[in-house]
Simulated scan of single mutants.
Amino acid sequence: MFLLAAVSHAALSPQLVYWNSVLPNTPMPSAISDFNNPGRDTNVNVGHGGVNVNTGHKGKPWVVVTVPNRLSIVYAAAETQIHDDDPNVALFFLEKELRRDAKMNLYFTKTASGGAAFLTQKEADAIPFSSAKLPEILGHFSVKPGSAEAEAMKTTLQDCEEPAVRGERKYCATSLESMVEFSMSSLGTRDVAAVSTTVAKAVTPRQQYTVMEVKALAGDRLVACHPEAYPYAVFYCHATATSKAYRVRLVGTADGVVVEAVAVCHTDTSAWNPNHVAFKVLKVKPGSVPVCHFLPDDTVVWSRSGQGRAST
């Protein structure tokens, strides 16, 4: 697993100052604040010589309540990737199932930032971010070619360079500033809101949850940003007008844990791989009905600002 690095507390202030100046009335979701203050014992020292990364063994844990490896945006997962006894099978559901008092069997786990932290836009712009420059980038971060870290960086760069799927706009944000600006540009307004799933406990049992409240996010456009493995915080963002998002309050039957989850429903799946696991699980065909799933707590969903409307 790729080892990510953290920045010192002194380096956090530019991101926080930027957020408060651009989005003064918007609460910062934990999926972003975790990358502003990872709280790790590793350091990234930014100076005239660039960024010197000193990593520790602080890998990013895999999240069960997610679609593996950005399944929701790659759309190419074969049905063999998930077996019937895999807890991820329960993640996909139909939009009509998202209603108050509905019961869902889920397994939520609270994630950590893995030690990654945002660079400022100026710092990020000074470092190459391209597959063609991979040897230079590896040297910059003192990463050994062929190592697990190097392969993770290579994969991230390749993912970021793939063309967007039909009906979407994509961008890899290498700073908080670039994530915010991409989201505002894609949504057509600077009046935006950002949300992420929050889990009250670090570890919860696999259990049945009851839906207590469902609220649709405002607007018909969304931007979802997913963290990538890299020496500093990089988010793969994609904008679409063919998805809807909901804030869902869930309560666990076994331990009473409260989860404020974000669910996304893809309204046009006609371009997805017909062998996508969602179609196997839901027994539906591409493009026939919206396909929904919950997002992990390290993913940010941006929407136009406004009070979400309650759903029954």
Rank of each mutant, 00 (worst) to 15 (best):
83 H>W: 11
131 S>D: 11
94 L>R: 12
52 N>T: 09
82 I>T: 02
146 G>E: 07
63 V>D: 14
96 K>I: 00
103 K>C: 01
102 A>T: 01
108 F>N: 04
108 F>V: 00
43 N>Q: 15
47 G>Y: 06
63 V>P: 04
55 T>R: 10
115 G>I: 06
49 G>R: 06
68 P>L: 00
66 T>C: 09
103 K>E: 09
146 G>C: 02
58 K>L: 11
114 G>Q: 10
76 A>P: 01
91 L>A: 08
73 I>H: 14
67 V>C: 03
73 I>K: 15
147 S>I: 00
113 S>L: 03
97 E>M: 05
55 T>Y: 14
90 A>H: 08
121 Q>F: 10
95 E>P: 00
96 K>Q: 08
75 Y>S: 13
114 G>R: 01
53 V>W: 01
89 V>N: 15
96 K>L: 01
130 S>L: 13
123 E>Q: 12
140 H>S: 07
33 S>M: 03
62 W>C: 09
107 Y>S: 07
100 R>K: 11
120 T>E: 05
60 K>T: 08
136 E>S: 04
146 G>W: 01
47 G>W: 03
81 Q>A: 06
72 S>R: 13
141 F>G: 08
97 E>F: 00
65 V>A: 15
130 S>I: 06
112 A>E: 14
109 T>P: 02
90 A>E: 12
44 V>Y: 14
66 T>L: 04
111 T>S: 15
39 G>R: 01
146 G>V: 01
132 A>S: 11
132 A>D: 13
119 L>T: 10
71 L>D: 14
86 D>F: 00
104 M>E: 01
87 P>S: 07
41 D>K: 15
35 F>K: 08
144 K>P: 09
92 F>Q: 14
64 V>M: 10
94 L>I: 02
138 L>N: 09
92 F>E: 07
92 F>W: 08
78 A>K: 10
123 E>Y: 04
100 R>I: 05
142 S>E: 13
84 D>Y: 11
120 T>V: 03
76 A>T: 14
119 L>K: 05
130 S>N: 12
47 G>V: 05
121 Q>K: 06
38 P>V: 11
60 K>W: 15
129 F>G: 02
129 F>W: 07
124 A>E: 10
77 A>T: 12
44 V>T: 15
41 D>G: 12
142 S>A: 13
125 D>H: 02
131 S>E: 15
67 V>P: 04
40 R>Q: 13
113 S>Y: 04
145 P>G: 06
136 E>T: 04
89 V>D: 14
121 Q>R: 10
91 L>D: 09
65 V>R: 10
93 F>A: 04
71 L>Y: 08
41 D>Q: 13
114 G>M: 08
65 V>L: 14
34 D>S: 08
47 G>N: 10
